[in-house]
Nucleic acid binder design. Structure first.
Length: 278
DNA sequence: AACCAGGGAAGAT
DNA sequence: ATCTTCCATGGT
């Protein structure tokens, strides 16, 4: 098994990156976390001085974790514009992953109106039944394999999303993905939303996580709660547009940062409540 | 316009 | 312990 290491700084953290809602194929291991992408696996171990990445394809995962981008500079620009405070660097270890577009599209159609444990379980079932066996894990299946009936996806527990998934596999091609990769944000969003099951929010997640378009601000329930007082009587789609007008190319980073902060706040709250009961 | 379509975690009582 | 809410989209 090949390994590479990244020195510790404030601009990468495994849990912050994996647990902020952008990826679903990951879990804890004995010493750290593993993440799966396409047909590859990477385990990330915190060994004190640095993070150690165990994987067969170093270049793939350096790109996957967006290590070619300078996050010190990105967060610096965001601080300069007053969108981010250095008082609390909680969340500054988030990186916007560069995920496979097909995998991202299917994952986020499954994610709609759903919660993370079930999203993970549905995606894992798809990989187990259609992907290739790599011993300790299964690959994300290719489009040919994904062409299955609505009933197939129903039986995996996809619920009413089953027909979206079945339709998607039939109607999208790798040629479409090539074309999409060359489009700008607005044109690509429009194209994505032509598929059944992809509305504005899911499209924005795909734009950000599957195509690395950072001028999008996915408004989910957490983001909505954060901004509902600042933007009263504003539906999520409209709120998203206003937020992009404000944050521009930094939107995706600010969105992930605020999402993580809001959820951490909730988790800290739960811990406190548990302690109070004792 | 209001409701429905899985399902199960998480919140509320 | 059990009841209710939540989640994002498209169709009726």
């Amino acid at each position: 098994m090949k390994k590479f290491e990244m020195p510790k700084n404030n601009y990468f953290d495994t849990l912050e990156t994996l647990d902020c809602g952008q990826v679903f194929r990951f879990d804890k291991t004995e010493n750290g976390y593993y993440v799966l992408s396409e047909n590859k696996r990477c385990e990330i171990v915190d060994n004190g001085d640095c993070f150690q990445f165990d994987c067969e394809d170093e270049n793939f995962f350096k790109n996957y974790f967006d290590f070619q981008s300078d996050y010190a500079k990105i967060w610096g620009n965001i601080v300069d514009k007053g969108y981010y405070s250095t008082d609390n660097d909680f969340g500054s270890g988030i990186r916007i992953l560069r995920q496979n577009p097909i995998e991202t599209i299917f994952s986020f159609v499954i994610s709609q109106n759903n919660h993370i444990p079930r999203i993970k379980s549905i995606i894992e079932s798809i990989c187990k039944s259609l992907g290739d066996d790599y011993g300790s894990y299964f690959s994300f299946p290719n489009l040919e394999k994904l062409k299955q009936s609505e009933d197939f996806y129903k039986n995996l527990g996809a619920g009413y999303r089953a027909n979206f998934l079945s339709d998607l596999a039939k109607n999208i091609s790798y040629a479409d993905i090539d074309k999409m990769s060359k489009m700008g944000t607005d044109e690509l969003r429009k194209k994505l939303m032509e598929f059944k099951g992809i509305g504005r929010k899911v499209a924005d997640c795909i734009l950000l996580f599957g195509f690395h378009k950072t001028d999008v601000f996915p408004v989910d329930t957490w983001i909505y709660k954060i901004f509902k007082d600042e933007y009263p009587n504003t539906p999520p789609d409209k709120m998203s547009k206003l937020l992009v007008e404000k944050y521009g190319d930094h939107s995706g980073f600010v969105q992930q940062y605020l999402f993580y902060q809001k959820r951490s706040e909730k988790l800290r709250g739960n811990t406190r409540n548990r302690n109070e009961k004792r």
